[in-house]
């Protein structure tokens, strides 16, 4: 139990740092919302090695921390929508045991973007944001594959080191 709490804290800090690093290196392709999602790497590793609850908590805490520090509180609702949808879908995808880590990560990446677009359509009341959907599905898939491959390598190597007894 204590170990689990310590790992959750450590992983939260790591996800926070990854978000910060990513905010320093924005990918600007003229279309908003395209990013690698380094923080999701930490969430996925936690999901597999620590547990669903810990991964969910760290994902939420990371978003709130980012919103109040290096990010922008006005945009927190969009990050939250993306983060929550992505996390719920990843948990289900993992439970299904139909996909490997990469498949779970791809679903997470795509759902993150879909969640953000949906909430933006509701808040700004502009349906034409759907215009971004194709490119954001594509970028979510690409980012998901990259993060997924990294995550499966990390999970394999960290598995023994992080053994959490339940």
């Amino acid at each position: 139990m204590t170990k689990k709490i310590a790992y959750t804290g450590m992983f939260t800090a790591l996800a926070f740092v990854f978000s910060y690093i990513e905010s320093l290196l924005p990918i600007n392709l003229g279309i908003p919302g395209i990013k690698l999602g380094l923080a999701n790497l930490v969430v996925i590793v936690a999901l597999y090695l620590i547990g669903v609850k810990a991964a969910g908590i760290l994902s939420l805490v990371r978003i709130v921390l980012m919103g109040f520090t290096f990010g922008n509180p006005a945009n927190m609702i969009y990050s939250l929508a993306g983060g929550v949808l992505s996390f719920v879908v990843m948990v289900f995808a993992k439970k299904l045991k139909f996909f490997s880590v990469t498949g779970v990560s791809v679903l997470g990446g795509v759902c993150h973007n879909i969640g953000q677009i949906l909430i933006a359509i509701i808040v700004v009341e502009t349906v034409s944001l759907l215009y971004y959907l194709p490119i954001l599905i594509l970028s979510g898939t690409v980012a998901g594959v990259l993060i997924g491959i990294l995550a499966s390598v990390l999970i394999r190597h960290l598995e023994k080191a992080l053994a959490v007894s339940q």
């Binding site: 791809v106 898939t141 394999r156």
Partner: peptide, 29 residues
């Protein structure tokens, strides 16, 4: 008791993952 989800039998991708990726690319297109 130590519990782990087996991470994809060591390989980063399964056939199902590739099907998912192909399906998403088709949807995007």
């Amino acid at each position: 008791m130590v519990k782990f989800a087996p991470p994809a039998d060591g390989r980063p991708m399964k056939k199902n993952d590739l099907i998912l990726i192909a399906a998403l690319l088709a949807v995007a297109l």
